[in-house]
Structures are given as C-alpha cells and as structure tokens.
Design a protein around this nucleic acid. Structure first.
Lengths: 179, 179
DNA sequence: ACCTGAACACCGTTCAAGT
DNA sequence: ACCTGAACACCGTTCAAGT
C-alpha cells in the first residue's frame, strides 16, 4: 500500500496522490484503504516514516564508510542531499509541513540523532568547534535541507548541478565550524 | 483579490485556499475570478510575485540600513528569515514547488540579485572570499532558506527560537566565507 | 466588460450492507 | 476481518446565458 502510494507520487507528484488511484492500482476499492489507515494523512505519515528510516540508514552508512578526519562529516552532508534528490517523493512528504504525526517525529528524531552523534565525535576528535551539538546540528541540517529544497523545487539555475552546490556548501560549512 | 487570497491562506493555510472561498469573501461568485485570472495557479503566482517583491524590498532595506563592515551581510540574512516568519503564507506559496511561472521567476531573480550584489560589494571591500558570487549566493540562500523552511514546517524543537538559530547560522556562515 | 447558475468530472470520507 | 456501492459535502473548471 505504502509502496503503491510512493509509486504514484513518484510518477505524478504529491498533489496527484489520490486514495482512489492507490486503490485502483491495487485492484481494490477506494474505501478499502480505510481498513488499514485512518485517513489520507495516515497514509502519508507512513510514507514519511519510511523515508526517515531510509534516510537514517543512508546517513549511518555514509558516516561509517567515511575515513576519519576533519572532512568526515562531508560524506554525511552529501549523502543527505543525495537522498533528497533520489527520493524526492519521500522527501516532499517528510517535510510537507501541516502537522507532525507521532511516528513521523519518532523516525525524524532518530535520523537527527545520527547527525548529533557525528558532531559530538568530531568535536571529541578536535575537528569541530565545541558549540552546543544540538544547535550545531540544527545549523548543519538547515544548510543541507536548504540545498535539497531549492533543488527539488526547481529553484536552482539549470546550469547548476545540485550535488556540486552540495559539495560547495559542505566545504564552506566545514570551514565555518572547524575547531 | 490577491489580498483576499492571502488573508484566507494566513488564517486557514494554503490547502484551504479555495476559489469559492475567495469569491465568497469578496461577495462574488466563484467563477467570477476567471475574468481576472486564468486559473487557480495564476492566482497563486500573483501571491508569489507579491511576496518576492516585498522580500526584495526587505533585503534592500536591511542592506542599506546596515553599517559597512564584515558583518554587514548578517542583517540581510536575518531580514530574510524574518520575512519568512512574518509572511509564512506568502513564503509557502513562493516556494510551493510545482512549476515556476514566468512572473514569479522574474521577481525571484530580482530578489536574488540583491544578494549577489551584496556579495560582490563585500568581496570588493575585502570582507569575503572571492569565490564566484553566484555560487556563493546560492550557498547563502540555501542556508537562510533551510532555516526558514524548518521553522515554517515546525521542525525546530519548541525550545529553539527560529531567529536565534538564524543568528547562529549567520555567524557560522560568515566565518565560513570570510576572506 | 463583467458576472451568474447549472453542469461536469473529480475529490476525501462515511455508512449500511455484503462475504 | 475485509471489502463494496451508494451517498454526502466538497473541489476546479467550463459554458451558455444574462446585464
């Protein structure tokens, strides 16, 4: 069900996500979805939860794979933007604003925690200034989220590659918060 | 008409913006709007254009009022985030994704140019590293846009003040791009 | 020129009813 | 337990018709 929803969002955009459509693509009545989800929001929350789960995994992998050193966090920053570019439908739903469901927030917090932990590690290793890790994490999150959203909303000039901007952003970001 | 649309978006959110509602709040039939706007998108484009116009004015004012020096750009960064917080309905519509209308892009480019010009000025004054101003502008835009979007989407912890985060972001941002 | 009412093809959601 | 069809209260949009 969630998979079917993601599929339609991917091909036709989030606005085209309709319970009737999801039902039809599953060969089932529209109202049948109400046996599994309270309403449309609940379906979207499930999509968002799945998104935050795979985002967390991506960040974890990037951090683990990166070799230690002052540039280690760059890998996570790039992985974040890459996730948004490769899963635009998930990403859009994850930050669709409105209200924040409980599940959604839970998963989001876990993904955020990966960032906070990485910051603490870099500080301990003497690679990053010892500001409050939570505040620093919010700042870093803002940077990569900003790059991701501008790219997804088609706000970057056609000549600019989103991942190039992400690389530049990570470079400047690191310079600004180094120890 | 645009004012009526903005009013409803402000009170009830962008999803509740309905042509019938706008018409009713103007004491006019829903279909009457089609004499003035091609469709709903055109109405939203008009809202976005108005938003970009006032954003440009805010940035201009902030830059003009700020005293020269290495910290001069901070005023613009804070003004940007403040605009988003004070005009959330406009801001949401301005970056609602989908497709980019021509008018919308025109105004957006003008607002963006204020940033590019400010960067060039800071570079000339020896306060900022001489990277390509356009790339630098996209980076700075990403930072403030990220802060604004996280704040508007309720993604910041309740304990965190959005303007405080904006101030921290500007501080780290400046450190990362200083000459 | 500007507005109206009816109509069309959609929505999400509810509910009685089926197996 | 799971699904269905009809129904309700909405949408955006079109169009013939009014002044």
């Amino acid at each position: 069900m969630v998979a079917a929803a993601v599929r339609t969002i991917q091909t036709d955009g989030i606005a085209a996500l309709t319970l009737r459509g999801v039902g039809a693509s599953l060969g089932v009545s529209r109202t049948a979805l109400y046996r599994h989800f309270a309403d449309k929001r609940a379906l979207l929350d499930a999509v968002a939860a799945e998104g935050f789960r795979t985002l967390k995994a991506s960040l974890d992998d990037a951090w683990t794979a990166a070799s230690p050193g002052p540039r280690r966090m760059d890998a996570m920053g790039l992985a974040y933007v890459r996730f948004a570019l490769e899963h635009p439908s998930h990403y859009r739903v994850m930050f669709s604003g409105d209200g924040a469901g409980a599940v959604k927030d839970d998963r989001a917090t876990q993904a955020f925690q990966v960032l906070v932990d990485a910051i603490a590690a870099q500080q301990k290793a003497g690679h990053m200034r010892r500001d409050d890790p939570h505040q620093l994490a919010l700042y870093i999150w803002s940077v990569v989220h900003g790059v991701a959203m501008l790219a997804l909303d088609g706000r970057l000039p056609p000549t600019v590659d989103a991942m190039d901007l992400a690389a530049l952003a990570n470079e400047r970001l690191r310079t600004g918060i180094k120890a």
